[in-house]
Amino acid sequence: MNTADLAFAPRHDLGIRTVSVSAPGRLHLGFLDPSGSLGRAFGSLGVVIDGFTTELELSASPSEADQLAADTPAAEAELPRAAAHVAALRQRSGCHAPLSLRLGQVLPPHAGFGSGTQLASAIGRAYAEWHGLDVGTATLAHWLGRGLRSGIGIAGFDTGGLLLDGGPAADGLPAPLLSRIAFPEDWRIIVVQDPGHRGLSGGAEKQAIAALPPLPQSVAADICHQVLMRVLPGAASEEFAPFAAGINRMQQLLGEHFAPAQGGVFTSLAVARLMRWFADASRANGAAIGQSSWGPTGFAIVPSETRAQLLVDAARAGGHVDPALEIRIVTGRNRGAVVRDRSVPPRAR
């Protein structure tokens, strides 16, 4: 069990049934065709990661009204959105029993980890489990307004791994999952956060996308070729060099396309400087470097724990890490959310 699974210790009376959910974060590695040059827009590549989770528990309310609580200031900020999700689930399901919902921890918001989708999916899954509803994660996400562009977080909630989706359907349903490959166990991901910045989201994100010129079909074709013939085969066969080359080319093309909307290839200048240093320091051994979604979170995927630690140590020793940045070395996660019900053994989705 990962230490992140232990960070959230459910606190409930043993006489009260409680459903808890631990939902993993993900990195969005890029869109295939955000402009829909062939009629179907977006399509996403992403990887689920360990070390970043949304944790919550749901039980019966001790009163006739819902009881919502949070363990941290970040989780408390998400309580209005959590209440809205519960209200939407009631409207869809017709189940109206008052509930107690506690948010233990949440993913960093608007930072490239899929915080909104994981919060919605975790609440939806806990709600469905509590009421005995046979509803899939994609349907729950649709009920709660998630998956309008990317389906990576929705699929990742169920399966983990390196994921490719085909873009949302015309009817608004979340994107179909096209490929799921286990992320190689030896590879490591250096995650670089800049807590002082936030990526675009909501209306600002829609406006930014609408203001950009269409991505040329030739560029979208190049991205699709990189994913199909480098990234996915590289991961499937644990060949790091083609995987890294494909990710780097994809990130270059998308970074240049989105630069006018986000102030550069990277949203955070401090992250950009460190990513450039990682790239220069990795020329001999290779690294897949980029930004997750609108950032500001950057990542460097390398072939081993040793290589990851050497890079981070060298960056710190050389004074290349801005004091505002936070760095963690994590693994890819090849399992989805964990749902626990005190009346049944734990089960991993």
Rank of each mutant, 00 (worst) to 15 (best):
T3K: 14
D13N: 14
S22Y: 04
P24Q: 08
G30Y: 02
D33V: 00
G36P: 05
I49L: 05
D50T: 11
P62K: 01
P62I: 03
E64A: 13
D66V: 01
Q67N: 07
A70T: 00
D71C: 11
A74Y: 01
A75V: 02
E76D: 03
A77L: 08
A83Y: 02
V86W: 01
A88H: 15
A88E: 14
L89F: 08
C95A: 10
L99Y: 03
G104V: 04
P108N: 15
A111I: 07
G112M: 06
G116L: 03
T117N: 06
W130T: 04
V135C: 07
G136P: 04
T137C: 12
L140T: 04
A141P: 00
A141Y: 03
R146Y: 08
L148G: 15
R149Q: 15
S150L: 07
I152V: 14
G153C: 08
T159Q: 11
G161T: 05
G167E: 05
G172Y: 10
F183Q: 06
D186F: 11
R188M: 06
V191I: 13
Q193P: 02
G196H: 06
R198I: 04
S201G: 09
G203D: 00
G203S: 09
A204T: 10
E205N: 11
Q207P: 00
L212C: 09
P213E: 05
P213V: 11
P214W: 09
L215M: 13
L215P: 04
V219R: 13
Q226C: 01
V227I: 01
L228C: 04
P233D: 12
S237A: 00
E239T: 12
F240Q: 05
M250Y: 10
E256P: 01
A259F: 10
Q262P: 11
R276W: 15
W277P: 04
F278W: 02
N285Q: 14
I289G: 01
G290S: 13
G290P: 08
Q291E: 07
S293F: 10
I301S: 12
V302W: 12
S304I: 00
V312E: 03
V312N: 09
D313A: 15
A314P: 05
A317S: 14
G319P: 14
V321D: 13
V321I: 15
P323G: 06
R328H: 13
V330K: 04
G332L: 02
R333T: 04
N334R: 06
N334S: 06
S343T: 10
R347G: 09
R347F: 14
